[in-house]
């Protein structure tokens, strides 16, 4: 016995060093990739906001002109708040539409049916979001399918493109399935005994959803909404194709800055503002999702 102990620990030590180096080698590409294509790119983007454009050519410089010009411009401020509002609205609407669906999946379907529905929610992502958003246009335009059908019963035509409604429909195409899935995963993990305990303490069915189910699934529900916000905030497809750039969002502003006049530095200002906004939103959402587990007055 005494003799074997050092032997095993020696082999253990030698063994663990080998695979650790091996595992590190496999883990390395990801940090390298992240550093090259995200951190370095981001740093370059920050640097570029201080450059200037002369004769449609970007030149290294150190000027605050781009920041001052963009942040003081009324159209930028309007667009910024509009984009935040659209993304927040999309997150809210998606969360509200998704909740009954995710709730039904988690609590009313048999486990095998749950698996079928959950995997069918991944199916939309098999086709490009661009294609799906574009196909909405066929349905929604003035002489599109929906207005055509409504025309038979002497209704319409309704303006369903180039407005907030169209943009929201597009956002839903992008985010709704993933919001339902994320909500479903968090609802499926709600302890059923807590629901029974609530019923046992005279909490009715609907009230239990508000008092027990939502607080229990809080982290997941907030994460789903955050995800919806992030995806909608940076989206270009819906506001461009379904909203016809009217009114513009930050992503459209960014593309415009580049297209009309090669204003790469100004586009970089917009991009950095967006990244900063998303970081702030993500940070606040995490604090809200994980903090203050037990509320106490």
């Amino acid at each position: 016995m005494v003799g074997t102990i050092p032997t095993t620990s020696a082999t253990g030590g030698r063994r663990s060093r080998g695979p650790r180096g091996f595992a590190l080698a496999f883990a390395l590409p990801m940090p390298v990739w992240q550093t090259l294509f995200f951190v370095a790119a981001l740093l370059f983007l920050i640097v570029m906001t201080f450059w200037s454009v002369r004769n449609f050519r970007v030149e290294p410089d150190f000027t605050m002109a781009n920041w001052v010009k963009m942040l003081s411009a009324g159209y930028f401020q309007d667009t910024y708040f509009r984009t935040v509002w659209y993304a927040a609205l999309a997150a809210l609407v998606a969360s509200l539409i998704a909740f009954p669906c995710a709730y039904g999946m988690a609590f009313k379907l048999s486990p095998s049916f749950q698996r079928i529905v959950a995997s069918s929610l991944i199916l939309p992502y098999f086709t490009s979001y661009l294609v799906r958003a574009y196909s909405w246009k066929i349905l929604l335009t003035e002489n599109g399918v929906i207005n055509g059908v409504l025309g038979y019963v002497n209704l319409g035509p309704f303006a369903m493109t180039s407005n907030l409604f169209a943009v929201l429909v597009g956002y839903m195409t992008l985010i709704l399935p993933i919001v339902i899935l994320l909500q479903y995963f968090s609802l499926a993990h709600v302890d059923r005994r807590l629901i029974e305990a609530a019923h046992n303490l005279r909490c009715g069915a609907l009230r239990t959803v508000i008092q027990v189910v939502i607080p229990s699934a809080r982290t997941g529900l907030i994460l789903a909404a955050t995800f919806a916000f992030i995806l909608s905030f940076g989206d270009f497809v819906s506001p461009s194709f379904l909203g016809n750039n009217k009114p513009p969002t930050l992503s459209i502003l960014m593309v415009d800055a580049v297209k009309s006049g090669s204003q790469w530095p100004r586009a970089a200002v917009v991009a950095i503002t967006m990244v900063a906004t998303l970081l702030l939103v993500a940070f606040l959402a995490m604090a809200f999702a994980y903090g203050r587990k037990a509320e106490s007055r």
């Binding site: 807590l194 609530a198 607080p215 229990s216 509320e295």
Partner: peptide
């Protein structure tokens, strides 16, 4: 089956 999101008194 105590509610983990509520304090003792709640």
């Amino acid at each position: 089956a105590l509610f983990p999101f509520l304090s003792v008194v709640k």
